[in-house]
Design a protein around this nucleic acid. Structure first.
Lengths: 80, 80, 80, 80
DNA sequence: TCAGATAAAATCGCGC
DNA sequence: GCGCGATTTTATCTGA
């Protein structure tokens, strides 16, 4: 088996891993859609739920960034 | 426990399911990034791999659509 | 002057407007870079400044989203 | 007013300049979006317009690079 | 089914 | 030159 064949197999392995993961990701996206559909069927306004989820996500991000900048401040002050 | 409280719990349950799923989705997205990083470390050009993945995804969609239309034809012909 | 020629002129006008605006945008991006460079020259850590800017931007976005969801709530309650 | 206060004011000034510029940049980005919307309303396919803009931008870059290399040649020949 | 909004992927550009 | 963040482009999704 020559080098190109080996490379091809190697590349193929990467492609398969990626495509496998992307499929899983798509499946989860579908699950999320289903939850929204279920919530809607229960009488909730999905637009509001999406907004709440979005705000909570931003909270988490903001908290993470604030911790990060605290690290930067401490590091800048030589407190490491 | 009044109705609003019940609703709040119900809503909370939906939020938790969604956020749990979104976290899983993010984790998988990170895994994908890692695979690309590993491929890059092995000497592959990630831009090319992305192109290949994208093309194969399109192929898969095309195949699915063609099967779908074949079903439609067969169904129209009463061959179901 | 036929229709195609008219269309071509119309399209050309759109292209010119877009390209003019993009040039302005690029100029402003350069200005921002210069401010960072100046701040760095004054002894500031640009990484920290970027982080502060980012956090403040998120604050603004979050505030906007919270107002938006308040509207949604009020609207859902029939208080419009 | 102690040194920290002075620094704080200095930093604040940088932040304000940056945020002012970023706001202008965002405004221009919005203008661009509006032009695309207008073009779409006039019946143009924005995807195609984006492609044209992109190609023309590449042409411009190419031309700039060619001029640059011409300068280098001339300079190497002592024709400055 | 379509436009408009939202989110994801790809690309670009910067600082280190 | 590489990672990383921002931007931009593409794809997906929802509600009318």
């Amino acid at each position: 088996m020559n080098t190109n064949a080996v490379d091809a197999n190697h590349l193929r392995a990467f492609l398969e891993r990626i495509e496998r993961l992307e499929e899983e990701k798509r499946a989860i996206a579908d699950d999320i859609k289903e939850v929204y559909a279920e919530a809607k069927g229960t009488g909730y306004d999905t637009k509001i739920i999406r907004k709440i989820v979005s705000i909570r996500r931003q909270d988490a991000q903001k908290r993470a960034e604030e911790e990060e900048i605290l690290e930067l401040y401490l590091s800048a002050l030589g407190v490491e």
